[in-house]
Simulated assay, not measured.
Amino acid sequence: MNTLQRVAIITGASQGIGAALVTAYRELGYAVVATSRSIGKSSDPGVLTVQGDVAVPGTGARIVDAALARFGRIDTLVNNAGVFVAKPFTAYTDADYDFVAGVNLRGFFEVSRSAVAAMLSRDGGGHVVNISTSLVEHASSQSPSALASLTKGGIDAVTRALAIEYAAHGIRVNTVALGVISTPMHPPETHEALAKLHPLGRMGEIDDVVQAIVYLEDAAFVTGEILHVDGGQSAGH
């Protein structure tokens, strides 16, 4: 183990944006702790995989403990795990609320609390990056999704709160607020309509998100930022 090697935890890392972030952080020279409910083992000695549901109390501490046991430190946490359920507000069920709040809020709280504590335990600071949605600031009648706004709005707010709380400790906290990203969750037949939701006239790509997070990783003077990667959606339409 190289105790000088930087270490990143990435949640929701088994597919899509999360899997791409594992590759990107390895290319930056980081060791990576990749976690999701269904992630398999990695053949890369610089990648530790940890199965777990971040909505379950205790999972965050277990992930962080595994990271410290294997790599000895935590420099970055990317809270990529998240869920999106689009329904009219009155159609949401109690199960929908528990599911969305569990992953988006409890999941953030679980892993971030333990990761920030680990960052505070040594000199050198750290970085927390969250994933949100531009719907928090730019609601759309074409995509009713109040639970996304309720939970991810909390993420936007806590980003600013923690950025200020821990600035003196050298810990930065930022968020990337997304438009609609082309991932397997969107069937191909929906792409044309989804592209029209963005002034740039296309859906976002996974690489667009990865590039934004890599920028924030290197942007040592940026904290408390909500960086929109949404094709202009949050600016107007």
Rank of each mutant, 00 (worst) to 15 (best):
residue 151 T to W: 09
residue 189 E to P: 05
residue 132 S to H: 03
residue 187 P to I: 09
residue 176 V to G: 01
residue 162 L to Q: 14
residue 167 A to C: 00
residue 146 A to R: 08
residue 192 E to F: 01
residue 126 G to Y: 14
residue 162 L to M: 15
residue 145 S to W: 02
residue 151 T to Y: 08
residue 133 T to C: 03
residue 143 S to N: 12
residue 155 I to Q: 09
residue 170 G to M: 06
residue 143 S to R: 13
residue 152 K to G: 01
residue 175 T to Y: 01
residue 166 Y to H: 14
residue 196 K to F: 00
residue 166 Y to N: 07
residue 156 D to N: 15
residue 158 V to M: 10
residue 138 H to D: 07
residue 199 P to Q: 14
residue 176 V to Q: 01
residue 140 S to F: 02
residue 178 L to I: 06
residue 161 A to K: 03
residue 198 H to E: 10
residue 157 A to P: 00
residue 160 R to W: 00
residue 157 A to K: 14
residue 146 A to M: 12
residue 191 H to Y: 05
residue 160 R to H: 10
residue 199 P to C: 14
residue 152 K to P: 03
residue 153 G to D: 12
residue 163 A to L: 11
residue 196 K to N: 02
residue 141 S to G: 09
residue 138 H to I: 01
residue 194 L to P: 01
residue 126 G to R: 11
residue 147 L to I: 07
residue 162 L to H: 11
residue 126 G to N: 11
residue 151 T to S: 15
residue 181 I to H: 06
residue 165 E to D: 13
residue 195 A to M: 10
residue 138 H to A: 15
residue 143 S to G: 07
residue 167 A to R: 05
residue 192 E to M: 02
residue 168 A to H: 05
residue 153 G to F: 12
residue 176 V to A: 06
residue 160 R to M: 09
residue 167 A to N: 02
residue 164 I to G: 00
residue 189 E to Y: 13
residue 164 I to S: 06
